[in-house]
Design a protein around this nucleic acid. Structure first.
Lengths: 340, 340
DNA sequence: GACTGGCACTCGCACGGACAGAGTGCCAGT
DNA sequence: ACTGGCACTCTGTCCGTGCGAGTGCCAGTC
């Protein structure tokens, strides 16, 4: 029906105008700025219907309309296409990320880049341990009965734990332990390392059994602990830009949620590497983020997402552009980590 | 002179009241809340003098007085004593920090703890590389001509770099390289590692010269780079508490400075472990922090500060309590890192 | 039946005056 | 040297008014 067509067109126009002007948009302004081919009065009728359907709302009687979460949702799903980045932006991504010296540096640059491109808060998750494989295990003796265990993954993460042994350990045992561990674990996915541990306990040389047991249990702890999924946050200053309507009252709860990390990590756990995920306002199912949107995607090869990255901002954001930026950065980071 | 005595007493009272009530304080309120033994009129005279001397100021004519940076400085230097922490607080520190599994965890807990204790933004610096010694150097081959170099310090930091070698390397060379490097560097302060490198180039076996050269130069880069001084920031949500007077206009520049890190790190470079450093407002000599105070101290043993930690907040803060908290946390962190 | 122009209506907001309250500075008195 | 009293200044607030934006509705037109 031509009717519905135009109504959606009106919704699209409202979203676009509101995002760019930062002001509730009225029928007259819409008619002026867009070629809808109808008069403000007609647009008003359409708006009344859109409001009834819950796509838009007015902050107060004599103000223009503002999209609701549902309105943004429809916009993202059906009314917009991801806007390709400019060549300059692609260049910027490369220039910004090349020259990173290690994983920490890559992620630090990524979060700054993303914050700068989108002018929102950026979040980047460390490659999930459970999706990494062991590249090397190092054992360093720091005291007679204390070992430092260092785990290096193929994704560049380095985790360390101190292990207290029941008895003193000599240098030979350390050497032996190191080669036993590496022989058993190198190349193994961490998610499957649990199984290997039991194997190892049986096959390990007699005199090392105790040591291997102690060390292995620490190793397992390191992996099981899901809180070890780290998050880098940047660009929080961007929260202070924008409209008073953007966050009701204060940005405080958002800042708190970002520091909590847990909240964001939970959202992040749902990403996959092929499609950009958008969570709008109340969809986030967490009070602090009820007035925020979260745009994220997994990075890594398409068949294996190593972790996620994304942005957090007001629901009033430029979704097409931001989705493009998030996707582009994720791709580049994926390449970067794959080849290191 | 009894005069001056009382005037300082008045200043102290103003600072205390302003910090706790968040409102400019007038002569009457002062007379009511403190036993100064004189009438409001007399206090007014004292205040006029204090204002003339630049210790206090009034936001506008009919408001009470507010301390200036200079006023806070005098308060910190001469009018306050560091307030000891309650037993409960000391308990909280121990409970909070014990059970940390590695350096990252220690610093993460520290920053949360400090933010919670002081209700300000907390910053913690990673142990400075230049003040750490090598505990172990690990070389992992990740491709025919690519090595991963992992540096573990006695302070628990782990740094990694990828090294591209000119020619392919075989497993034996890697092993040899590893032992040569460890023999040369283990126990050496990183600040002095530069000297060792040239020694090593001469003493290393002929066939390893090239390899040692390439690896060493990367190693040096890692250390020279001062940007590798990392910073953990937490409790930024606390910036949104408090008075409109606290930060003129917006907290934005403060957030930006915290993300920059460089600014804070430069301030942090001046800490020592024995005395708590307080920088008030304009003293920070950086525009973004002109309305903020920075309270910091070094951690580590008293003779060797490994790094710094502190808090950033409005100049209107409870200095005695916050200084105590910063010092107490630094001590505990120092112990913790010393024994690991 | 769909669209449009016109019109009355509702609000929020900016402006301005009046007012109360807080706080000061000054002065004369003890 | 201190104090009580007093006039003064300034801000924040409340209220009434007018304006403008934007709407909803209705009668009229294609």
């Amino acid at each position: 029906m031509a009717h519905d067509e135009r109504r959606l067109e009106v919704l699209r126009a409202i979203v676009q105008d509101y995002v760019s002007t930062n002001d509730p948009v009225g029928s007259k302004a819409l008619a002026d700025r867009h070629d809808l081919g109808v008069s403000p009065a007609t647009i008003r009728n359409d708006m009344a219907v859109l409001e009834e359907q819950g796509y838009i709302t007015q902050p107060h009687t004599s103000a223009g309309r503002v999209p609701t979460d549902k309105g943004y949702r429809l916009f993202v799903d059906r009314l917009s296409s991801v806007k390709p980045l400019s060549v300059a932006e692609k260049r910027a991504i490369e220039r910004f990320l090349d020259g990173a010296v290690d994983l920490h540096d890559v992620l630090g640059r990524t979060v700054r880049l993303l914050a700068q491109l989108t002018r929102q808060v950026a979040v980047v998750q460390y490659p999930s341990l459970s999706r990494s494989a062991v590249r090397h295990l190092e054992v360093v003796q720091v005291a007679a009965a204390r070992l430092l265990l260092v785990l290096i993954t193929d994704t560049g993460r380095v985790e360390q734990r101190v292990v207290e042994t029941q008895t003193d350990v000599d240098a030979d045992s350390v050497r032996e332990l190191r080669s036993v561990l590496n022989a058993a674990f190198v190349g193994v996915q961490l998610a499957e390392a649990g199984d290997k541990v039991s194997d190892l306990l049986e096959t390990a040389p007699e005199h090392l059994r105790g040591l291997v047991g102690t060390v292995s249990s620490t190793l397992l702890e390191t992996l099981v602990e899901p809180s070890e999924d780290r998050l880098v946050v940047g660009g929080t200053a961007n929260l202070t830009r924008g409209n008073a309507l953007d966050f009701p009252g204060t940005v405080r709860p958002v800042l708190e949620a970002l520091e909590e990390q847990v909240v964001v990590l939970r959202l992040m756990s749902q990403v996959d590497a092929s499609t950009v995920m958008v969570r709008i306002g109340e969809e986030n199912a967490h009070e602090a983020l009820a007035s925020a949107s979260f745009v994220s995607v997994g990075y890594g090869s398409t068949d294996r997402a190593l972790g996620g990255l994304g942005i957090v901002g007001p629901t009033r954001m430029d979704y097409p552009t931001n989705m493009a930026a998030v996707r582009a950065v994720a791709r580049y980071v994926g390449h970067l980590l794959a080849e290191s």
